[in-house]
């Protein structure tokens, strides 16, 4: 089957972000979605440390230690962008002003529960950042992740076994194998990669799926 690479997955998520959307891209893989938004379009990227209209990484030598994103990477600000404090930034998030948030995940449950901040290891130092605020606050929470863990376990589950970030918050899941919506009916598969049958996808997914594909497979 044509498993999506990380770049292909980011490009697929980018297709669903309309021009004009206010978007928060989580740390790590979700950040790379920005690289696939069409050039010349107006996309408002929000970073919870206080940027709206965030631009790409600066040219080497142009880095400003006081201009960083939530992942503490050097970034730029587009013309028209602005800065604000954390109160305003989380009012944007919690107040439902962010249209789309894309997050990574350890697990997503059938009902849209999200686990992405802590593996529950008692020795681990917990760190949550803005994940719980984004999970409850953004109008649409999309998750992008590998379908399976490195040891082959399904990251889509009946109930999360890792500590929760938010309950019932995920609307759509993009994996390297499929696009799946979390609906009142359950997990509806919208797309599968070429060469992957619905039955095969179901067999490696630890929660019941509904075949909601318009076409049998995407190229």
């Amino acid at each position: 089957m044509n498993r999506r690479s990380r770049e292909e997955l980011a490009a697929r998520v980018a297709l669903d972000i309309p021009e004009g959307a206010y978007v928060n891209l989580g740390i790590g893989l979700p950040t790379t979605v920005a690289n696939f938004l069409p050039a010349g379009g107006d996309y408002f990227l929000h970073s919870e440390n206080g940027l709206l209209g965030m631009g790409p990484a600066p040219a080497p030598g142009e880095e400003d230690p006081e201009l960083i994103n939530a992942g503490k990477q050097h970034v730029t600000l587009l013309p028209g962008g602005c800065y604000f404090h954390h109160g305003d930034s989380f009012a944007m998030i919690r107040g439902g002003h962010i249209d789309i948030c894309v997050l990574g995940a350890f697990q997503v449950a059938r009902n849209g529960d999200l686990a992405n901040w802590h593996l529950g290891d008692p020795d681990a130092i917990p760190a949550v950042g803005g994940a719980m605020d984004l999970a409850v606050g953004a109008r649409q929470v999309y998750v992008m992740m590998e379908h399976l863990t490195r040891t082959g376990e399904s990251k889509i589950v009946e109930r999360c076994t890792y500590p929760l970030t938010g309950i019932g918050c995920v609307k759509r899941i993009y994996t390297d194998l499929a696009v799946i919506d979390v609906t009142a009916r359950g997990l509806e598969v919208r797309e599968t990669v070429a060469g992957l049958t619905f039955e095969h996808l179901q067999s490696i997914t630890a929660a019941p799926l509904i075949d909601g594909r318009q076409r049998s497979a995407l190229a």
Partner: peptide, 19 residues
């Protein structure tokens, strides 16, 4: 890890709105 400092983890937005 040595138990020499207490930690309260507060979600970033809750930290902001509590302040």
């Amino acid at each position: 890890r040595a138990g020499s400092i207490e930690l309260e983890v507060v979600p970033q937005g809750n930290l902001a709105c509590r302040l």
